[in-house]
Design a protein around this nucleic acid. Structure first.
Lengths: 234, 234
DNA sequence: ACAAAAGTGTTAAGGGTACACCCATGT
DNA sequence: ACATGGGTGTACCCTTAACACTTTTGT
């Protein structure tokens, strides 16, 4: 059996909960993923995950961060974790390339400037994707959904301070189904994932009781409960 | 930033629940991992996970299976799944090598013949390990423990038919803490993970009621419950 | 009869969900 | 006063864990 050196690339599915970019349409918050459009063949015009080849003496995590820095402000990347490896010999043409995929998360209000070929796309409505990047996004999304239920990973999607209804919208967008703010509060408070700041927000124009503000207790990833929660209603 | 082609290896932590090999000692079943002893430098004499370099036109899964075939009878490998990638540039000397790790499971009664340099070692008492293979075993074990609680992965550790007390011993060895056979039965039956065969085992020499035999309903990996169970007592 | 092993029944505790109801603010 | 959004209380269900008790076998 012959052995060869193969290329190795890292690719990141970076998510953020955003209101739709389109001006007039439905302004509900939705989960978006960061993609760039290929200018060159192969797969010209299709959309790719950010990333690229692993450099010499580079750890994979270091490599992802370096390559993401070309697309987003790294200070806004609140979470980064390894996902699966895609190793099909024919997954891309020409040189054989193994891809290690990552999950990245950017908190909600931040809106970094993007290069002109780069854009946020709603996960529920992806453009034509290059190579095997479509399944990679799906895989990353599944992982995010799972971890929202038993870890404090939400800190990486939420602003520093937030009202519970805001947090509900974020969880709801990321999970893809409605979330009850009441129960979200209790689950996260019992697990001591969120803490009251003591301050309150001002009411909106249309009135309503002012919301208490919360923050995530820790900004470091932590498994909080082996029990899964936040599953779809029904 | 320069780019290079790096070597890529696959390594598998293959587990089996076995009684201790030692003749006279404590014959309780314990979780073991398959290791081989390095005959050559570097790290000569230390113990390694089976695996090796990825071949041309080889999928990683294909590669692991090929390389494991040199150590165990592949027909006995009931489960194989990808774990993490280890990419520290200095994780092994000489050529830079990225390692993709796998979790493999072999059912309990099977005792394949092994090459002379290869042996089952209790996970709780590992020999001096080569390179970063120690943490790899630990990582694989953690994954196994987690998945025992919310998937049917036990099928890959258990014999085709078994008494519940046997299954309890297997789960107990793999989890590293005592398991109540009563509750194990109810949890796995409710989830329809195990099914009664209708037959019963004969009693042992010392008497006792004959045990009903069970089998796993499916022999394919499946997530059975988002809820974690089988956590340590207390 | 007795010991040993297996299986059943019962209870308690914890977590999650659903939903009715009360509270505070703006118009 | 009323609408609007926020927050609390409560009741229910499901799952698991713990353990006492019964059943079936061998000696």
């Amino acid at each position: 059996m012959a052995h060869i050196s193969t290329d190795h690339e890292v690719l990141a599915a970076v998510f953020q909960v955003r209101r739709a970019d389109l001006p007039s349409t439905d302004r509900k918050a939705a989960l978006h993923v960061l993609l760039w459009q290929r200018a060159l063949s192969p797969e010209r015009g299709k959309w790719s995950l950010p990333g690229g080849r692993l450099g010499v003496d580079e750890d994979m995590t270091t490599s992802v961060r370096r390559q993401l820095a070309e697309k987003v402000d790294l200070r806004e990347l609140a979470h980064l974790e390894q996902l699966a490896v895609f190793s099909d010999p024919d997954r891309v043409p020409r040189r054989r390339t193994i891809a290690s995929t990552f999950l990245g998360l950017v908190p909600s209000p931040a809106t970094p400037e993007l290069p002109s070929d780069t854009r946020w796309h709603p996960v529920s409505d992806l453009p034509p994707m290059a190579f095997d990047h479509g399944p990679m996004v799906e895989h990353a999304h599944n992982r995010l959904v799972a971890k929202l239920s038993y870890t404090n990973i939400g800190f990486a999607l939420a602003p520093g301070e937030f009202a519970l209804s805001t947090l509900r919208d974020i969880y709801s967008a990321a999970l893809g189904h409605p979330v009850d703010a009441t129960n979200l509060q209790r689950v996260l408070e019992r697990r001591q994932v969120i803490t009251r700041t003591g301050t309150t927000a001002r009411s909106g124009r249309s009135g309503g009781r002012p919301a208490a503000l919360y923050r995530f207790t820790e900004s470091r990833y932590r498994v909080t409960d082996e029990f899964a929660a936040l599953r779809p209603p029904g």
